[in-house]
Design a protein around this nucleic acid. Structure first.
Lengths: 236, 236
DNA sequence: ACGTGTGAAGGCCTTCACAGCG
DNA sequence: CGCTGTGAAGGCCTTCACACGT
């Protein structure tokens, strides 16, 4: 596969959402122009983004909504089930666990973990919160029964986020969605001096969702409205 | 001011966070190299980003942590108080309202709104949830007393997000942080046919925080690990 | 005739190398 | 001598125009 701009992936996610809306409105076809307007980008951009992955349209006609939707879901890997653990089950972690929509895409929460004794054993979304020390064991056992744990979500306070990431990686998780406002370092805490990622971090993908950062960016743009931000970035 | 890459603003936010960590560890000076490593970018990038806004370092010496921190806070507009209303006080809205850290930056929640009668009157973080119909009135009254309402956060279900945004804009809010997984259209619902933003949207800034999108991007990158994503995007 | 798919042009951000200053 | 600040080079993403298929 060719080299694909990171921003294009974010836009694909947006297109998919729009296709879902169209489908639930029983609209059966669309065009690069239509998608572009709804997504807030140019039609050129839409066609180019789609072209990275194949040819999904019909010249002169446009795109068939269900077909393009199916293709995008395949491309984005949303046809398969993703097993997810959440580290941190405070208010944020619970809000995430209960957020509707995740299950629409076969993201399945299989385990909740925390370090706070008061939360251990608590029921959240049908799962009993476990101590973070049992994560490795839990992941291993899952691998032998209901399938591997694919991702971990980090919803702990910032001071504990790096350690949580480390625990997840050691347990063998391949992707991390980090909600804490820090940059996860792809190396062990002990080897912080080395500039090379530690081995066990090889291939681990990290995505960040930082709404404090969003607030700060917003503050800046309100103060500096002349910097037009009709950018790709808004698809974060 | 020169034209500044959107991504640079996201990185500034990251640098600021790092400076805060350094300060709380009583580290008094740093360098572009040090910041770069902690932020996961190149030292060139750090220096270029800072250069957009001024000259904050000393040649041969590096940067003074408290000074650079102060300057970045000024640049990002975090020395002033921002009055914020939250639309939607379900689980997500409550988690946002209670998230610690916002108050560290003088983001002040002054009003909580919802459309669900069961939530009206409920106390969240010391504020009584009001009906969304009273938003305009509320904003107007605030403007005459404790100061203008600067931003609105949207934490409602996706179907209601566009309407919530519309309400916020009509009330005169200048920035929106949208947590719903949709693209806010800068136009009234009625004028959806027109391709021009409606007047009242002029100058309104929209930032998105979409963790479902984060999950989907993560799924894609786990499936396609060869697409190296050591990108700027991770500072979203 | 209409809208997609795409090679090529263009522009903007990043990278670089080094000048400049402490 | 060390590290910042910055003009210039480079590269990648976006934009464009048009060929192509229906």
């Amino acid at each position: 596969m060719a080299d694909i701009p990171t921003a294009a992936i974010s836009r694909l996610v947006t297109y998919l959402r729009i296709l879902e809306q169209l489908e639930s409105n029983e609209v059966s076809r669309t065009s690069s122009n239509d998608l572009a307007e709804r997504a807030g980008v140019t039609a050129f951009q839409v066609r180019k983004d789609l072209a990275y992955f194949g040819r999904f349209g019909t010249r002169g006609m446009g795109y068939t909504v269900p077909l393009l939707k199916r293709e995008l879901m395949r491309v984005l890997g949303l046809n398969q089930t993703w097993n997810v653990v959440i580290i941190g089950t405070g208010r944020l972690g619970q809000a995430i666990a209960n957020y509707p929509g995740a299950s629409d895409y076969r993201f399945q929460y299989v385990g909740l973990f925390d370090i706070n004794p008061e939360l251990i054993g608590k029921e959240v979304r049908g799962l009993s919160v476990k101590h973070i020390g049992s994560l490795s064991e839990f992941v291993q056992e899952k691998a032998n029964t209901s399938g591997r744990v694919d991702m971990g979500f980090i919803a702990v306070p910032p001071e504990q986020a790096q350690a949580a990431a480390q625990t997840l990686v050691e347990a063998g998780v391949k992707g991390i969605l980090n909600f804490a406002p820090i940059v996860i370092q792809p190396r062990t805490l002990e080897r912080a001096g080395l500039h090379e990622p530690a081995d066990e971090w090889h291939g681990v993908i990290i995505e960040n969702v930082d709404f404090l950062a969003g607030m700060k960016r917003l503050a800046f743009y309100i103060l500096n409205p002349h910097l037009k931000i009709t950018d790709t970035e808004e698809h974060a």
